[in-house]
């Protein structure tokens, strides 16, 4: 629409939200039980699961809320202070 206020889907619509982070989640896949509760509960959708069930974090946008570490019963994710 002519000059209309229409927006298209893109990552980072709110900016590089990883910059907001004070603490960073670090995943130890050797301790991971592949329950994927971190994936389920991550508000941002920055916890990704691979074909073997392994987990990684998209740090570009992870806001560091710490929910993934909190819901991880195996304690495979720990929050580390950003320097």
């Amino acid at each position: 629409m002519l000059g209309g206020p229409v927006s298209k889907a893109t990552e980072g619509a709110g900016g590089l939200t990883g910059m907001w982070r004070i603490r960073r989640p670090e995943v130890d896949n050797s301790m991971c039980t592949k329950c994927h509760l971190c994936w389920l509960f991550c508000p941002e959708g920055v916890v990704r699961r691979g074909c073997k069930g392994e987990i990684w974090i998209v740090y570009e946008f992870c806001k560091g809320c710490g929910i993934c570490a909190e819901v991880c019963a195996a304690r495979a994710i720990r929050m580390v202070r950003e320097v």
Binding site: A9, E11, G12, T17, C42, E44, G45, E60, C65, I67
Partner: peptide, 14 residues
């Protein structure tokens, strides 16, 4: 998609 403007830990976007 990631990188939206919600507060960290927002249950509503979850």
């Amino acid at each position: 998609l990631p990188g939206n403007a919600a507060c960290p830990g927002c249950a509503a976007v979850m």
